[in-house]
Amino acid sequence: MSPLTQTAAGRRWRVGPSVGLLPFFVYVFIFLVIPTVTVAIGAFQDDQGGFSLDKIEALGSSTAMRALRQSLVLSFASAAIGAVLGALLSYLILAAPPTSLLRRAVTSICGVLAQFGGVTLAFAWMATLGFGGLLTNLLADLFGIDATGSAWLYDLPGLILVYTYFQIPLMVIVFLPALEGVRPQWREAAVSLGATSRQYWTQVGIPLLRPAFLGSSLLLFANAFAAYATAAALVSQGAPITPLLIRSALTSEVVLGQANFGYALALQMIVVVAVVMVLYAWMVRRTSRWLR
């Protein structure tokens, strides 16, 4: 076989497997690339379609900055609480044998609860702690608390609580493989050298797990920052976070012509999520060095 024939055969061999990825690339192009380009173009247009920086400058307004600030607080708080509690739950799960029914059941439940969101989750919390909710009425009967409920569930504190509900199981899913990658031989080696359990975790275990923990926390942050449906179902009026402010800009019947401002807000969110995901990829790359 001539070198030219070998080169052509090698090219066919390399191109062949990539054909199976074509539907994925088409999916990414339609549902990620095109919307991103549309948002980026619309953010720099005025209401007549001409180039303008007015909508970008409007991101510095008090309303937009307040929504961004509360979105960051919501994402950081729910990610921090979810990361800590999820890491502790992962450690407890790891204590059970891999074939135990309890471990398989908990991981399966976490997989379901991590995807339990949107209107269904919002309704579950409203039926429990909302106005006239089950727990609200129970507290009123037992302790004399106002039976009409409290409005905190429909504001930032309530959003943090509800978001944490699906952040904890998500943390278990993404952090458990890192814990499983910690080899028992490392602990045995540390103990044989005279290290205590506390010294092992502070000098070996935690430094090894730190990149995976921070990377998982960043993923939780991005997950909360981009969430919309649950907050939209809970907060029917007002726009305390950026996704709801985008909804208001696109659908408001009071202030018209704000669609391009919604594009500018969406571009702002894309930039924040992109930065977080770049940091997440860097953390994952660091973690993969010792998981091999």
Rank of each mutant, 00 (worst) to 15 (best):
F116I: 03
A77M: 09
M171K: 04
A58R: 08
S197V: 12
A224Y: 04
L139P: 01
F261I: 03
G50A: 07
S100A: 11
G10M: 04
R187T: 04
A190K: 07
A266R: 09
P23S: 07
P184T: 00
P157H: 12
L220I: 02
V278S: 09
T164F: 09
Q199L: 10
L234P: 03
M171H: 07
S62C: 00
V174Q: 09
A64D: 05
L161F: 13
Q185F: 06
R12L: 15
A239E: 06
G60P: 04
T196F: 13
A249C: 11
F166N: 01
F143L: 14
S71G: 02
L74E: 04
P3I: 08
R12S: 10
R103K: 10
I160A: 07
D47A: 14
A40Y: 08
F44H: 09
T63V: 08
R14F: 12
Y154K: 05
V278D: 04
F24I: 10
L161R: 05
V276P: 02
T36N: 12
L214T: 08
P98D: 14
I241M: 03
T287C: 01
W290A: 05
I109Q: 07
V255S: 11
A105M: 09
F225N: 06
R69W: 11
F131Q: 13
R292Q: 15
S90K: 03
V204K: 07
R247E: 15
Q48W: 12
F131L: 00
Q70D: 15
M126N: 08
Q185C: 01
S61M: 04
S150P: 00
V235R: 02
G262Y: 08
Q45K: 14
L85D: 01
I206Y: 14
R103H: 07
A231D: 01
L72K: 02
I109D: 02
D155Q: 15
R198C: 06
I30W: 14
S61T: 09
F25T: 00
L234T: 01
V276S: 05
T5D: 13
F225P: 02
M126H: 01
G238T: 05
L159D: 03
F213K: 06
Q268F: 09
A127M: 09
R285P: 01
A239H: 08
P97Q: 12
R210V: 08
A190L: 09
G50V: 05
L68D: 04
M277E: 12
I56P: 03
P98G: 08
Q185R: 14
L256F: 12
V182S: 02
K55R: 15
G194K: 11
P177L: 05
G118D: 08
V172K: 06
L121H: 04
F175R: 06
F24S: 13
L193P: 00
E188F: 01
F24K: 00
M171V: 02
R104W: 05
G86R: 02
V255H: 10
A114W: 06
V33T: 10
N223K: 14
Q115T: 13
L218G: 12
E188T: 12
D155N: 14
G215I: 07
M277R: 09
L121K: 04
T107A: 08
S78V: 06
S71Y: 02
S216N: 08
N260H: 15
V39P: 00
R289K: 13
A83D: 06
V276M: 03
A226L: 10
G194P: 13
S62V: 06
D46H: 01
S61C: 01
